[in-house]
Design a protein around this nucleic acid. Structure first.
Length: 235
DNA sequence: GCGACAG
DNA sequence: ATCTTGTCGC
């Protein structure tokens, strides 16, 4: 029991949520503090969440892989009521309670957490991955399937090709469009906490060998759907 | 006001 | 996120 869940409180309003992001934003650390990609024995965790709004249920799953072999080391899930509505830019408040609860059920402490969504590539530079990273203190990266409001130039068709994700308003680099599979739509990577963009991309490439999404995310996605089905069924 | 909008 | 089967293509 690491007690991560107790570090988060669900805001009563969207305005409060935005204020919380403003308070925590400054705690994000952009530095190369996670173990390098591929190191055996390293614990790389993937987190994902599934919903059944009609039944007011959310289920999260964390799957921990060995960074060297990508073999599953440990898994944990947590379910509960949906804490917050989905509002663009405030996704974290919808996913954090269950995600932190699942992390609390882990026996080991991850060396890196891969989140489904954004980190610094966020309207206020504080997406889900950064929020989770700051609250847990764990290195984290954000991997999204869509560029939200960000833009990027063309990138080569080869695996590993990368292009800067920039904020159309400020021109600031917020992340990277990263091609994990040749000729396939890229994923959008950004720094969560305690990693650099280069390290984040390197990890994602290592975790997505022959598939578009990191293996961590794929496994967590499958597990949280199963956990949701169980939660809704009753057990 | 209208559209866009991580999951 | 979620509603949803088969099907076209490498």
């Amino acid at each position: 029991m690491t007690g991560y869940a107790a570090r988060h409180t669900t805001p009563a309003t969207a305005e409060e949520a935005v204020a919380v992001q403003g308070e925590l934003r400054g705690r994000v650390v952009v530095a190369d503090e996670a173990p390098p990609p591929g190191r055996p024995g390293t614990l790389v965790a993937g987190v994902d969440v599934a919903y059944d709004d009609a039944r007011d249920t959310v289920a999260a799953a964390v799957v921990v892989l060995d960074g060297g072999t990508l073999e599953v080391v440990e898994e944990a899930t947590a379910a509960g009521p949906v804490p917050f509505p989905y509002l663009p830019g405030l996704l974290a408040f919808r996913e954090l309670p269950a995600a932190l609860a699942a992390l609390d059920r882990l026996r080991g402490v991850p060396d890196l957490v891969v989140c489904d969504g954004y980190g610094l590539a966020h309207p206020r530079r504080f997406g889900l991955a950064s929020h989770l990273g700051v609250l847990t203190g764990l290195p984290s990266v954000g991997v999204a399937k869509n560029p939200f409001g960000f833009a990027h130039g063309p990138l080569d068709a080869e695996r590993g090709a990368r292009a800067a994700l920039t904020d159309p308003a400020t021109g600031e680099v917020a992340g990277a469009a990263l091609r994990t599979r040749a000729g396939v739509k890229p994923v959008y990577v950004s720094v969560g906490h305690r990693v650099t963009l280069d390290a984040a991309c390197a990890h994602v490439l290592r975790l997505a060998r022959d598939v578009r999404q990191p293996e961590t995310t794929r496994r967590a996605d499958r597990l949280c759907r199963a956990a949701l089905a169980r939660a809704v069924a009753g057990a």
